[in-house]
Amino acid sequence: MTALPPSAWYPVALAADIDPGTANGTRLFDREIVVWRDSASVPHVWEDRCPHRGMRLSLGFVRGDHLACLYHGWQYDADGQCRLIPAHPQMSPPDTIRVPPLASVERLGMLWAHTGVESSGGPPLEERPVRPVRSIAVDCPPEAALSRLGYFSGPTGDDGGSGDWTVAAPAPSLVVVGSGDHAILIGIQPLSTRQCVLHAVIAGPGGDGLRISHWLEEFRLAVEAEAVQ
């Protein structure tokens, strides 16, 4: 098993799971991040810490294109710059009060963030329209999930009966399980060295979301049992 690169694009949520005006906390390699959409639906991925008292911003709330901390209401604009301190409403907050943003992009029906300082390119492109299946948290090392997907048989009955599944890994954190008229795209989010989340979408006209969801539950059962051994 090759280790995942520490500096790369990783999925952090299914695009459909982050509604406009909401924030959600998650992790990449144990680093706490907040994924949120402003009211214009633009996604943002930041460090999940209010510079004021270290409160998790994911517990806060979105106001327009600002994210506000639950603790004292400090508000940050789309670039992470502090714009309002309610206790001192007349004051213009200094530039130094800023939440570090991660490079982020919406692609393949997922939200992606780059874990490095310098980001380049992006996750692979997909020409076919995609639709979301689900995200599923798995208690196993992300590398174990990646390698196990390479030889886990595709969902029975979802291949038009052919039994032919191809598996490809076009990026370090993306596995494509394809058959006939559709492919299951699975982005792997490393929460830590021991836990990951698989974000699954269907590309192409075929594929049964419910069947694929149950298939992912079977995969979780298999790979977790191996991780315990």
């Binding site: 959600n24 906390g25 992790r27 806060g60 639950l70 689900r134 995200s135 948290a137 989340v197």
Partner: peptide, 29 residues
């Protein structure tokens, strides 16, 4: 809640039930 996106959606919807009230540990916002 990060491992439970479907439950997060459900919980947000639950908050719109008329008469919904919070308790300590559940934010009003």
């Amino acid at each position: 809640h990060d491992a439970y996106p479907a439950l997060r959606h459900w919980a947000r919807r639950f908050r719109t039930i008329p008469g919904f009230r919070t308790m300590p540990g559940i934010p009003d916002y």
